[in-house]
C-alpha cells in the first residue's frame, strides 16, 4: 500500500470526455465535416446574395432598360429615403408590428395559461391551437378576405352592408392585424407555455403562503421567472412581424397605404423590375431588422437562443 505523496498530487479537475489527443482531433474533424454541408448551403444562399444585393443597390439597374446599368453610388438610397411611399410603408410596417405583437403577447399569454392549466380538454385545446400555426398563411388570408368582402362575407354582414372594410386605410389595417394576430398567437402561446413550464409549482405555492393573490402571483412571480422566455418570444415575433407580406398581399394588395416594406420591395422588383431600387430596399430592411435584434439582445438582454454552448 502506498502512503500519500503530496508532491505527486495529480490535477483531477478534468473529468471531461476521455479522449486522446488524436481522438480529440478526429472529433474536431468529424464535427466540422458534419456541419460543413449545412453551413455551406446557408452561406451560399444568404451570404453571397447579401453581398450581391449591396452591390446591386449601388447600381442603376432596371431590367426594362438593361443597357442603362451603371454605378450610381448611394443615389438609390437617396431616392428611396426621400420617397414618401417608402416612409409610409415603413410606418405601416412598424405600426402593424408593434400593435400585432402587443396584442399577441396578451392573447398568447392568456392562451398559454389556458393550455397550461386547463382541467378539461387539454389535448383538444392544444390541438386546435396548432391549426392557425400550421395553416398556410395565404389560405387564412383568403378566408379573411372573403369574410370582409361585402355581400359574400359573414364579417362584412356583421359590420353593415355599406362598409367595405378592406378599402379604407384604418379598417383595412385592423383587418390585416387581426389576420396576423389570429395566425401567430398560437406560436407565441407555445413559446410562452414553454416558459410557464419553467415556473416551479412550489414557487407559486410559496408565494401564496407569503400572501400573494392570483394577480400578484402572476406579476411578481410568474412574469419575472418567465422573462427570458417572453423576451425570446418577443424577439422572434417582432422580427417575423416586420417581414409581413402574405397577409397584406392577399387582403389589400398594398393599396390605401397598407403596404409594408416587404410589399414595396416586391413591387419594385417583380412588378417594376427595378433591381437597383429593390436591392436598396432589401438592404435597408436588413439594417432595420439588425437594429431591432441588436436592441433586443443588448438593451433587453434577451438571451439569444442557442447561445448556450452545446453541452452534452
Amino acid at each position: 500500500m502506498s502512503q500519500t505523496t503530496e508532491a505527486a498530487r495529480p490535477a483531477t479537475t478534468h473529468r471531461a470526455k476521455p479522449v486522446l489527443s488524436e481522438g480529440k482531433r478526429a472529433e474536431r474533424r468529424l464535427g466540422l465535416l458534419l456541419c460543413a454541408p449545412a453551413a455551406i448551403v446557408m452561406l451560399a444562399v444568404t451570404g453571397w446574395p447579401i453581398i450581391y444585393s449591396v452591390w446591386l443597390s449601388l447600381q442603376r439597374y432596371d431590367l426594362r432598360f438593361p443597357d442603362k446599368q451603371e454605378f450610381v453610388g448611394l443615389a438609390n438610397y437617396g431616392t428611396v429615403l426621400s420617397n414618401g411611399y417608402w416612409w409610409t410603408a415603413f410606418g405601416t410596417t412598424a405600426l402593424i408590428t408593434v400593435v400585432s405583437v402587443a396584442i399577441e403577447l396578451v392573447l398568447g399569454m392568456a392562451l398559454a395559461l389556458i393550455m397550461h392549466r386547463t382541467l378539461v380538454g387539454r389535448g383538444l385545446v392544444r390541438t386546435v391551437s396548432l391549426i392557425p400555426y400550421g395553416i398556410v398563411t395565404v389560405v387564412a388570408a383568403f378566408s379573411w378576405k372573403f369574410a370582409w368582402t361585402p355581400d359574400t362575407g359573414y364579417l362584412a354582414k356583421l359590420v353593415g352592408p355599406d362598409t367595405a372594410v378592406l378599402t379604407e386605410k384604418l379598417p383595412a389595417l385592423s383587418a390585416i392585424i387581426l389576420a396576423e394576430v389570429w395566425k401567430t398567437t398560437p406560436f407565441m402561446a407555445l413559446l410562452l407555455m414553454a416558459g410557464l413550464a419553467l415556473v416551479p409549482d412550489d414557487l407559486l405555492k410559496a408565494a401564496s403562503m407569503d400572501g400573494a393573490g392570483p394577480w400578484q402571483r402572476f406579476t411578481k412571480v410568474m412574469l419575472p421567472v418567465m422573462k427570458p422566455a417572453i423576451l425570446v418570444a418577443l424577439l422572434f415575433r417582432t422580427l417575423d412581424a416586420f417581414r409581413i407580406f402574405d397577409n397584406i398581399f392577399i387582403l389589400t394588395g398594398g393599396s390605401q397605404g397598407t403596404g409594408s416594406v416587404s410589399m414595396q420591395t416586391y413591387d419594385n422588383l417583380i412588378r417594376g423590375l427595378n433591381l437597383g431600387i429593390g436591392s436598396t430596399m432589401s438592404v435597408l430592411i436588413f439594417i432595420a431588422v439588425a437594429i431591432v435584434a441588436f436592441v433586443f439582445i443588448k438593451v433587453f438582454g434577451t438571451a439569444a437562443p442557442g447561445s448556450d454552448p452545446g453541452r452534452r
Binding site: 468529424l30 464535427g31 466540422l32 456541419c35 453551413a39 422580427l239 417581414r243 416594406v261 432589401s282 442557442g306
Partner: peptide
C-alpha cells in the same frame, strides 16, 4: 469543435433574416 458557436450564431441570424432582402439578389 472550433466554430461551433459561430455556426449556432450564424444559423440564428439566418432564422431572423428578412427573407424579402434575399428576394432581389
Amino acid at each position: 469543435f472550433p466554430g461551433k458557436t459561430a455556426l449556432v450564431g450564424f444559423s440564428l441570424l439566418v432564422a431572423m433574416f428578412p427573407q424579402v432582402s434575399l428576394v432581389s439578389p
